[in-house]
Amino acid sequence: MRRLLSDSGWTLGLAGLLAALLVMTKLIQPDFGVSGLDSLGRAALPFALATLGMAVVVIAGGIDLSLASMMAVCSVTAARMMEGASDGQSALALIFVLALGAAMGALNGALVVASRVPDIVVTLAMLFVWQGTALLILNAPGGAAAPWLRALGVGGLTLPLIPEALTVWLPRSVIFLMVCLAVIWLPIRRSPLGLRFYAIGSDALAAFRSGVPVGRTKIAAYAVTGLFAALGGIAVTMSTGIGEPIPGPYLLAAVAAVVLGGVVLGGGRGGLIGPILAVFVLRLVRMDLTLMSVDPNVTTIVEGAIMVVVVMLGGVLAMRGRRT
């Protein structure tokens, strides 16, 4: 029990912080309600998916600096393929984009394994490659999103058989996120593959000696990251209705949220719930500051300061813990 508490202490703290922030938002803006939650969910969705992708690869001991560029590639591919396509065709296009994302991620991983160059350098080089690819696919923002896809991310949840009043407060974008998490991460986490991610992240040599195929596991981790990047790219197209070839500010935000969410850089520790909570905390802070009509530039300062101070506190606490 104590072990469970200390393991998930960070996540519980974040959940508490998020709850406190939600209460504060309600105090600042008394009519904050269903539509406010909805816009929060929509704003956070691409960030959350990018963060999930980054979290997986960081757990496996890597880092993927090309994440935002992969999202751009997926966003433009989806927008380009869905332009003027029927509903069925656009569904096929989405499946293709997901496969594309996983393939791009797997390529990143394979290059890391084959070249023996550090992860951070390989993905830095791939950042330029994917960025160039996105520009080749679509030179300027354009394309279109299927109407049903756009509707998927807007508004509250409505289920048949259950009265609407019960579920409408839950934004569809949050449900979308939860479904992605449940369909992709839960099966992996429960399978030997998930254990191997943590194993190669915490000590690659020990994992190798215990019979874990380190190279293949690493490629798999990068492929999962690519898959989340594809979902993130689709989410960008979903919310804007077009494809955006210039990578958004997702890379730095994802690294920040991953670290804030209790995943240790260097690998082997942390989960995916913490980073998601961290994304919502960061977005909510931004929203609160906007509601208080603070200069948006000050918001950037506050965001950076939160990230640095929280991580500093974490570092100091960890040192204390080691000493005693």
Partner: peptide, 27 residues
């Protein structure tokens, strides 16, 4: 200060400092 005394990972610390500094510049 962050990297040497608080033992924050350099990647994170310099990223955060960069964000803060950029915000200050915009203001």
């Amino acid at each position: 200060f962050g990297i040497a005394i608080c033992r924050v990972h350099p990647l994170i610390m310099s990223l955060g400092t960069g964000l803060i500094a950029n915000g200050c510049l915009l203001v």
